[in-house]
Amino acid sequence: MERKIRIMVAKPGLDGHDRGARILARCFRDAGFEVIYTGCHQTPEQIASAAIQEDVDLVGLSCLSGAHKYLFPKVVELLKEQGAEDIAVIGGGIIPEQDFDLLYKAGVKEVFTPGRSLESIVDWIRENISVQ
């Protein structure tokens, strides 16, 4: 029985710089994953409930506005509140290294910043995410 990995790619907050998010969405599709793309300008509430409705295994957040310190932990928190803490959350965008710890502590599984190859991100997913 083949189970497809389902990933939600979402842009929380108000910035519309979706180059990275869109490249990743394509890359995930080409890696054989099913990608639910929510587009820009999403609130953490929208992202969390969409992730649950779509029953994804992973939520990939991209933020370039500097608001990641509020937005990423909020998504993790909302998923937990709704009984979906098993949905993994990863993040990317313009995230200074000094913020990584705060994000990891908040429950973000991994942070990918510019310079990571697409292949290495796909590998990370194959290693760390499986359909339970």
Binding site: K4, A25, R26, F28, R29, D30, A31, G32, F33, E34, V35, I36, Y37, T38, G39, Q42, T43, E45, Q46, I47, S49, A50, Q53, E54
Partner: peptide, 25 residues
């Protein structure tokens, strides 16, 4: 690849946090 980008719900995201609307791609 057998993968897919499911982008339809993007236009319905304003209903995402309404508990009485269930959207599935």
């Amino acid at each position: 690849s057998g993968g897919a980008i499911l982008g339809d719900r993007i236009r319905m995201q304003r209903h995402a946090s309404d508990p009485d609307v269930f959207i599935r791609s």
